[in-house]
């Protein structure tokens, strides 16, 4: 594994700006791509842990992760810069779209090429999850928890808070139990 690199403040802002502006269909896939693969701010495992924490806290996950990652590198200003980077670009685009909506009275239709982009973005999100799972190599019982999360959210379409509140204690307990067993041996 290669070393991680501590970003400067400008790099933190610009990295998050890239995540926001390229985040078609949501920003989860690009966040991992930029933070773990391209800029190497965090290792795969560190990033996954921050994201896991961001998930059980209320609020947008990647937004929560931006606050935590920004803070880790540059304290309060880091948290603000990462958050600003994440939201500034998309907000500008949304303002443009809203002006368009006000003028013409309809939401601009999703152009055909955007349907193709959305299909590819969906695949990007799925590919990212597979890649993370592969690199993190969870023990079998935690892999099962992950698959339960997929089934609960995508197949049964349970509300996400229900999925998280049910599975989080299970995951934490299984993880602690494994560590305890390994320690007892």
């Amino acid at each position: 594994m290669s070393e991680t690199i501590t970003p400067g403040k400008a790099a933190l802002f610009l990295g998050y700006a890239k995540i926001g502006l390229l985040g078609f269909g949501g920003v989860a896939a690009w966040a991992r791509r930029v933070i773990v693969e391209e800029r190497r701010w965090l290792s795969e495992r560190d990033y996954a842990e921050v994201l896991g924490l961001g998930q059980i806290l209320p609020g947008p996950n990647v937004g929560n992760a931006a606050v935590m990652i920004g803070r880790r590198f540059h304290g309060l200003s880091g948290a603000l810069l990462a958050t600003a980077g994440l939201y500034a670009g998309p907000l500008a685009i949304l303002i443009a779209l809203s002006l368009f909506y006000d003028r013409y009275g309809t939401t601009p239709g999703v152009a055909p090429f955007m349907q193709g982009v959305a299909a590819a973005a969906a695949g990007m999100v799925i590919g990212t999850a597979i890649k993370m799972g592969e690199k993190l190599r969870p023990p079998p019982e935690l892999l099962a928890v992950g698959l339960l999360a997929v089934a609960g959210a995508a197949v049964l379409r349970l509300p996400l808070p229900v999925v998280v509140v049910t599975l989080a204690p299970l995951g934490v307990w299984l993880s602690l139990r494994r560590a305890w067993k390994a320690g007892a041996r």
């Binding site: 695949g123 990007m124 969870p138 935690l142 992950g146 999360a149 299984l174």
Partner: peptide, 15 residues
């Protein structure tokens, strides 16, 4: 223990 939930929910959102 929270990591698989985070990754699982990413996969679910993709699906």
């Amino acid at each position: 223990g929270l990591v698989p939930i985070a990754v699982g929910l990413i996969a679910a959102s993709g699906v």
